[in-house]
Amino acid sequence: MAFPERFSDLPEYAFPRLRALLDHHAPGGSPLAMTIGEPKHAFPDWLGATLADNLAGFGVYPPNEGTPELLAAISGWIARRYGVAHPASGLMVLNGTREGLFNTLVALCPETKAGKRPVVLVPNPFYQVYAVAALAIGAEPVYVPATAATGFLPDYRSLPPEVLDRVAVAYICSPANPQGAVASAEYLADLLDLAERHDFTVFSDECYSEIWREAPPPGLLQVAAARGTDPDRVVVFNSLSKRSNVPGLRSGFVAAGPGAMPRIRQLRAYAGAPLPLPLQRVAERLWADEAHVEQNRALYQAKFRDAAAVLAGHQGLTLPDGGFFLWLPVEDGEAAALKLWRETGVRVLPGAYLARGTGADNPGKGYIRVALVAPQDETRRGLVALRDCLYG
């Protein structure tokens, strides 16, 4: 069976490409993966007991949208974190944010916009699911560079009016993956103003929101509430994966307005898989606890201080405001990743694999993404090896 034509221009997923690049070469030292954003810090030690206390829940079908207790815990966290009273009726539990980032576009994107094929705006580089979701529903993904010249955030306002009038949804990620840039309250307010002017919805991917160096990033719900934006123009996604070091729990949420949420929930009733009840009980407790989040953040902040010390003086290095990646400038990302692997055993991701475009038109070509997820001593070893190999 032929692959659908609408997916023909989609690049291969990043990690199979990386394996093809590196795996037929022997590592030049003890292997150290600094590629995937899989947290390695410990999750709270009470998690196992909470799960064990609720094992009987595996014997029942769980609520599709989330238990009332879990939705209340998420609503409470939003209130504490952003000062926004977002009701439980405007929330739905997800099997990780990737599910929601895809299915919510299916649920909300119209078949036409301004009588034409709808446009979905995607920052470039980007998390691959944004583009796949757009192509799956027959929308046109428009990749907007997020480079040093634009503060590593997409300048959607620079697009021609005829394109903006066709926009149905704009994705934004803050802190950004891979660059770690944080969208300021002013940036988000400007984006909402643009959305109102051209009648589109903003999807905000905020799964790195609790990992920051100096100040907590503002959230779209917070900015929208302050300026009185129509709640149905705003959809926000977040997850416990990075915040609580439980990527295998597959627990996140989507927050939306009163018009949008029934459509999101209706689609999930047919096409989604609800989170098992024992995992919802664990998630409920995780959203209610901030002590482990503060400890986790402190570990990342220590590693960023190490990165600043190890890589000090190297041209182009900027520490990100949020997230746990370094977006390091190199002459060619693929060549740098291959050299680093063959000479040191450190494994990083070429930036071009996270972006759309060929040659110099690919905004990730001159970068590598380095994940600071390993324990501090291993991370420092990897950074020293990277410095000596690529910048020495």
Results as ranks from 00 to 15, higher is better:
Met1Leu: 15
Pro4Leu: 02
Glu12His: 14
Glu12Gly: 15
Glu12Asp: 14
Arg19Gln: 10
Leu22Cys: 07
His24Leu: 14
His25Cys: 12
His25Gln: 12
Ala26Trp: 03
Pro27Met: 06
Gly28Cys: 06
Gly29Ile: 02
Ile36Trp: 13
His41Ile: 05
Asp45Ala: 15
Gly48Asn: 15
Thr50His: 11
Asp53Ile: 02
Ala56Thr: 10
Gly59Met: 07
Glu65Pro: 05
Gly66Val: 05
Ala72Asn: 13
Trp77Gln: 03
Ile78Ala: 12
Met92Leu: 12
Val93Trp: 01
Leu94Met: 07
Thr97Glu: 15
Arg98Met: 11
Phe102Asp: 14
Asn103Trp: 12
Leu105His: 04
Val106Glu: 14
Leu108Gly: 13
Lys113Cys: 08
Gly115Asp: 04
Val120Ile: 14
Leu121Ala: 10
Leu121His: 04
Asn124Tyr: 04
Phe126Gly: 09
Val129Phe: 06
Tyr130Cys: 11
Val132Ile: 15
Ala133Val: 03
Leu135Gln: 13
Ala136His: 14
Glu140Leu: 12
Ala149Tyr: 06
Ala149Thr: 13
Thr150Arg: 09
Asp155Trp: 08
Tyr156Arg: 04
Arg157Ile: 00
Pro160His: 13
Pro161Asn: 10
Leu164Pro: 09
Arg166Glu: 05
Arg166His: 07
Ile172Cys: 00
Pro175Thr: 02
Val182Leu: 05
Val182Phe: 04
Ala183Pro: 04
Ala185Ile: 03
Leu188Glu: 03
Leu192Glu: 00
His198Glu: 07
Phe200Val: 02
Val202Met: 08
Asp205Thr: 01
Asp205His: 10
Glu206Met: 07
Cys207Val: 11
Ile211Glu: 04
Arg213Ala: 09
Pro217Asp: 08
Leu220Lys: 01
Gln222Val: 07
Val223Arg: 11
Ala225His: 09
Ala226Met: 12
Ala226Cys: 13
Ala226Glu: 14
Arg227Ala: 12
Thr229Gly: 06
Arg233Val: 06
Val236Asn: 06
Leu240Glu: 05
Arg243Thr: 08
Leu249Pro: 09
Ser251Ala: 15
Phe253Val: 11
Ala256Cys: 04
Ala256Pro: 00
Gly259Asn: 12
Arg263Ser: 12
Gly272Val: 02
Gly272Arg: 06
Ala273Asn: 12
Leu279Met: 11
Ala283Ser: 15
Val293Phe: 03
Gln295Ala: 15
Leu299Ile: 10
Tyr300Ile: 01
Tyr300Met: 02
Gln301Arg: 15
Ala302Tyr: 06
Phe304Asn: 01
His314Met: 04
Gly316His: 09
Leu319Thr: 03
Asp321Ser: 15
Gly323Met: 01
Leu328Ser: 05
Leu328Val: 02
Val330Gln: 03
Gly333Arg: 00
Leu338Tyr: 08
Arg342Phe: 05
Arg342Met: 09
Glu343Cys: 14
Thr344Arg: 14
Pro350Glu: 07
Gly359Asp: 11
Gly364Ser: 12
Lys365His: 09
Tyr367Glu: 04
Tyr367Gln: 01
Val370Asn: 07
Gln376Val: 08
Arg381Thr: 13
Asp388Cys: 12
Cys389Trp: 01
Cys389Leu: 08
Gly392Gln: 02
